[in-house]
Design a binder for these strands. Structure first.
Length: 369
RNA sequence: GGAGGGAUUCCCGAGUGGUCAAAGGGGACGGGCUGUAAACCCGUUGCGGUAACGCUUCGAAGGUUCAAAUCCUUCUCCCUCCA
């Protein structure tokens, strides 16, 4: 079944409960999407991802274009076949790399001219090319190519950048070959300027995108500014299409933005932080490296049902981590992703019961105590 | 018995008269990570003090010198080679 979004209900707080249907399966929202930039959620097998309950993961156009190259993935039968994942995949367009690899990028009307961070070779990522690559990957949800300006850019820059993103968005829609096969989301920019956000949201809402994302946040601005900006944007997005806040975030960020009407999130935090020893539990953050865990033979979180907490102690995990044993990265990633995915399960349940605000307060009361 | 080489701050290891509380690794300790150039990055690591600065330290004990981890003497221990 081609892409579809059904909004089941909206909680009194503003939180939305919905369901996305794609050719490769359904995704209940609000949802969290683990990031698998290079066709792998680092350290995990796809079986482990399924067991965790991940319904959709991310891949990245820029990175897969450079290595192994989309033609290889296409030859393998698409990214799903290539990586042995049969559930939906959302692919980012490479727009974020315009920001994170800015030193290697020159922006033109035609597209983003990159020097590969791997070998220095030149590549032009145009809107058409970004769609072409994502189609070759056979992405379920493609993202339009956008420019993600840094947080410190002045209004004039952001306004022009936003206009470029709109022109690119239209070109992406033009370039898409099969709307039944590959959904396409537009990305709202506008920095932290409420009026620009409103304008851009309205511009993109008028276009036939399957969903709309909010980009250009969590790039260094204050948290409160991020929340305010989302709040200034979502009222101008169509209610019958999913809203995706890109690159966010910490547990509080997820809850604050769900309350502001966001349906989808992705973030590297659970996976990256797992690999740097920062673990999420309902009672807050545990830094597994800390000496206090040396002789602590209890699990990270006694109430957690993840495979790591069911079987291993903090002392052992700390030992694995300090020894740089590969098992550490896998076990800790399993735990963190379980935490994020489970948080979203609880959120969905709370919305169904019209008690999101209560859930949020109680959760943060424990988590940030 | 003879000839050489060596002992440095938790570990390895640089330093061969002042710019040395002593490079660089490692380890330890703490922190950071928000559409992943990330199994990564940053900071601290003799004692005291906010700091200026003071004190103690380079196997041990003496000595030379304005000044010693660096030079001299003796001692202790370790290594290599020859008998």
């Amino acid at each position: 079944m081609p892409f579809q979004f059904v909004l089941h209900k909206t909680d009194p707080s503003g939180a939305r409960r919905g369901r996305i249907t794609t050719n490769r399966g359904e995704i209940d929202t609000p949802c969290f999407m683990p990031v698998g930039t290079l066709g792998s959620v680092k350290s995990l097998s796809t079986d482990e991802l399924k067991d965790l309950g991940a319904k959709i993961i991310l891949g990245n156009t820029y990175h897969l274009m450079l290595r192994p190259g989309e033609e290889i993935v296409s030859e393998a039968g698409g990214l799903h076949r290539f990586m042995n994942w049969d559930r939906p995949i959302l692919t980012d367009s490479g727009g974020f790399q315009v920001f994170s690899l800015a030193r290697l990028v020159r922006l033109q009307e035609e597209g983003a001219e990159f020097r590969s961070h791997i070998d220095g070779s030149a590549h032009l990522l145009s809107p058409e090319r970004a769609v072409e690559i994502q189609e070759a990957l056979d992405s379920d949800i493609m993202m339009a190519l956008d420019e993600c300006p840094a947080a410190d850019k002045p209004r004039e820059y952001v306004e022009q950048s936003m206009a470029l993103t709109t022109r690119w968005a239209k070109r992406c829609l033009e370039a898409r070959r099969d709307a039944e096969r590959n959904a396409l989301f537009g990305i709202v920019q506008g920095g932290v300027f409420s009026d620009l956000r409103k304008r851009h949201a309205q511009e993109l809402a008028a276009l036939p995108f399957d969903g709309l994302a909010i980009g250009g946040l969590s790039v260094g601005e204050e948290n409160a500014v991020m929340y305010d900006t989302v709040e200034a944007t979502t009222p101008h997005l169509p209610t019958d299409r999913p809203r995706y806040l890109m690159g966010v975030g910490e547990p509080r960020d997820l809850l604050e933005n769900i309350e502001r009407g966001i349906d989808m999130f992705d973030c590297v935090i659970p996976t990256r932080c797992a690999r740097t020893g920062r673990l999420y539990t309902r009672h807050g953050i545990v830094n597994i490296k800390n000496a206090a865990n040396t002789r602590d033979f209890s699990p990270l979180d006694p109430d957690c049902t993840c495979p790591t907490c069911r079987n291993y102690s903090k002392a052992y995990l700390r030992h694995l981590f300090l020894s740089k044993e590969l098992l550490a990265y896998r076990l800790l990633t399993l735990h963190n992703l379980h935490f994020f995915l489970d948080l979203m399960r609880q959120v969905r349940e709370a919305i169904e019961n019209d008690r999101f605000a209560t859930f949020k307060r109680e959760f943060l009361g424990d988590f940030e105590a």
